[in-house]
C-alpha cells in the first residue's frame, strides 16, 4: 500500500467511526456530511472523494459493523450446541443483541434503504449473504442429522426465517428504539418453532 492509499484508508476509517456515532447519537437525518467531516477531523471534500453520498456512508458503516460481528461468528459457530432449532435461535439472538447496541443506527439504515430518493451505493435492507449462508449451513447440518427433511428448499426456508428476523425489528421501531434485544429474540424463537414444526421429518 502506498502512502496515498494508506492515507485514504485512514480517512475512510475515521469517517466511518464518526458517522456511526453521529447517526446513532444525533440521528441520521439530523447529521450532515459537514458534521461527519468535523468530527472525523478531515475536510468535507475528502469525505466526498471517498463516498458519493450520506446514504452511501451509512451503507458502509453498516457493512463495516457486520465485519466485526461476522469475525466473532467465525469463532462462535463451531462451538454452537443444541438442535438445529436451538442453533438458529442463537444466531438470531446474537444478531439482535448486536444491532440493539446501536438501534437508532440500525433503524436509520433500514429507513434509508427504502427511501425513494436515495443514491447509488446503498445496501438494500435484508440483503445479507453471509447470514443467509450461515443459516443454510445450519439447516444442511440439520438434514445430515435427520432433524430437517431432506426434500426441502433450504434457501426458501432461510428466506422465510430472514423475513421474520428482519421485520421483528419493527418491535424496536414501535418502541421508539427502546426495546431489550431479548424481546425480539423471544418473538423470533416462537416464529422459528412454528416454521420448524413444518420441516421436521415425519
Amino acid at each position: 500500500m502506498g502512502v496515498r492509499d494508506e492515507q485514504k484508508a485512514a480517512t475512510r476509517e475515521k469517517v466511518l467511526v464518526a458517522a456511526r456515532d453521529l447517526f446513532n447519537d444525533v440521528g441520521y437525518e439530523e447529521t450532515t456530511i459537514r458534521a461527519i467531516a468535523e468530527r472525523a477531523g478531515v475536510s468535507v471534500g475528502s469525505v466526498f472523494t471517498t463516498f458519493a453520498s450520506k446514504a452511501e456512508v451509512l451503507s458502509h458503516v453498516m457493512t463495516h459493523r457486520l465485519d466485526e460481528l461476522y469475525a466473532e461468528f467465525d469463532r462462535v459457530i463451531p462451538v454452537l450446541r443444541g438442535s438445529t432449532t436451538d442453533r438458529l435461535c442463537s444466531i438470531f439472538a446474537i444478531h439482535y443483541a448486536f444491532e440493539t447496541r446501536r438501534v437508532k443506527l440500525f433503524l436509520a439504515h433500514i429507513a434509508a434503504s427504502y427511501n425513494p430518493s436515495n443514491e447509488a451505493g446503498v445496501t438494500p435492507y435484508g440483503r445479507n449473504p453471509r447470514l443467509s449462508q450461515m443459516l443454510v449451513d445450519v439447516l444442511a447440518e440439520g438434514v445430515r442429522k435427520g432433524e430437517v427433511r431432506a426434500d426441502l428448499d433450504l434457501n426458501l426456508l432461510v428466506d422465510t426465517l430472514k423475513a421474520a428476523y428482519a421485520w421483528n425489528y419493527r418491535m424496536a421501531a414501535a418502541a421508539g428504539g427502546d426495546l431489550p434485544a431479548a424481546e425480539m429474540s423471544a418473538a423470533m424463537d416462537r416464529q422459528i418453532a412454528v416454521i420448524a414444526e413444518g420441516w421436521k421429518p415425519r
Binding site: L156, D159, A163, I195
Partner: peptide, 8 residues
C-alpha cells in the same frame, strides 16, 4: 413461503 409457514 406460505407452504413453508403452514407446513406444520
Amino acid at each position: 413461503q406460505l407452504k413453508v409457514i403452514f407446513a406444520g
